[in-house]
Simulated assay, not measured.
Amino acid sequence: MTANAPVAAPVPVPVPEAPAVRDHAAEAVARVREAAEGVFAALREVRAATVASLRPAGGRRPVVADLAALRPLLWSRLDAGRVPALPALIAGIGFIAAPGLLADAPWYLEWWQENPAGDPVQLLRDLDPSSSAFYDYTHWDWYTGPLSGAELTVCGPYVDYLCTDEYSLTLSVPVTVEGAFAGVAAADVFVRRFEGAVLPALRGIPAPAFLVNAGGRVVASNTARWTAGSVYRGGEGYTVRPVGELPLSLVTGA
């Protein structure tokens, strides 16, 4: 008798893996978060430095001169456009004091703006309440948001007629000293710069997509139907994704 020959085991045929499906919306959320968080990180630095400057030696009330200690930090944030390693988003930055905070100036802004021709320049406004040109900053959303308890505020887009005449966003955080509201740390970002940072990611989404702030105002968009500055109030067929803990959301359509 002849023994049966062994039967060879079948060779498994490798099945190619399905290509990973890119989540373009998630990528856009990450890019927006990176851009905005960079500005808020700078504002947290300004807040910490402001709190330190508002605690002068001897227990006296702070004065305008105490805030001069902020200037090197503020100037460094405005130099970003001349340092390739830093994002050139911030066009103006500073601390806005709560009325009555300073002993020698009931109203005050330690605010500096970039200057393409040279060193940063300080914004000077009429802060005399008896003047017809008095600049009452306390009614602006970038001030009232932090005052009402919001940790992060994004105001705009709006045309900044008072400072730059540019279509702008203002991002702000509250400054508190020993639990008391002392004012606001804020930064201006030109919309065109913010769009330059986030639009490539928005355009990667194969559907209408736009970014809105907490009030529903469009900040950036990949579609002409939703231009920056328009207001989104909800609608059928749209999906809203929060951008982390930021007061921003990504809205996408079908």
Rank of each mutant, 00 (worst) to 15 (best):
M1P: 08
P6T: 15
V7Q: 13
A9R: 15
V11R: 15
P16N: 05
E17N: 01
P19H: 05
V21H: 14
D23C: 08
A25V: 15
R33Y: 00
E37T: 15
G38M: 13
A41V: 08
A42R: 12
A42F: 05
R44G: 10
R47W: 00
T50S: 12
R55E: 10
G58F: 13
G58R: 08
G58Y: 09
G59E: 04
R60Y: 00
P62D: 06
P62S: 10
L67R: 01
A68S: 09
A69S: 11
R71L: 02
P72S: 15
L73M: 14
L74D: 11
D79Y: 06
A80N: 08
G81D: 08
R82W: 13
R82T: 09
V83N: 01
P84H: 07
P87C: 05
L89C: 08
I90A: 12
F95I: 01
I96D: 00
A98F: 04
A98S: 14
G100C: 05
A103K: 11
W107A: 12
Y108P: 01
Y108L: 03
L109K: 04
P116V: 05
P116F: 07
A117F: 04
G118W: 04
D119Q: 12
L123T: 15
L124G: 07
D126Y: 03
D126R: 10
L127G: 05
P129T: 06
P129R: 05
S131K: 07
S131F: 10
S132P: 08
F134P: 02
D136S: 09
Y137F: 12
D141I: 01
W142K: 02
W142N: 01
G145F: 00
P146G: 11
L147V: 14
L147P: 13
G149M: 06
L152E: 11
T153G: 13
T153I: 12
T153K: 14
G156L: 14
G156F: 11
Y158A: 12
Y158V: 09
D160L: 12
Y161G: 15
L162G: 12
Y167V: 15
S168L: 12
L169R: 08
V173F: 02
P174G: 07
V175K: 02
V175C: 03
E178L: 04
G179W: 04
A180V: 15
A182M: 03
A186L: 03
A186T: 01
A187R: 02
D188T: 14
V198F: 05
P200Q: 07
A201V: 06
A207M: 00
A209I: 07
A209Q: 01
L211F: 11
L211Y: 05
V212W: 07
G216H: 00
A220L: 01
S221T: 06
T223K: 06
A224Y: 07
A224V: 09
R225T: 13
T227D: 06
V231Q: 11
Y232H: 10
R233H: 14
G234Q: 02
G235T: 14
Y238E: 08
T239D: 04
R241T: 09
P242F: 00
V243L: 03
V243K: 03
P247A: 03
P247W: 00
L248A: 05
L248I: 03
S249I: 10
S249W: 03
S249V: 11
V251Y: 05
T252E: 05
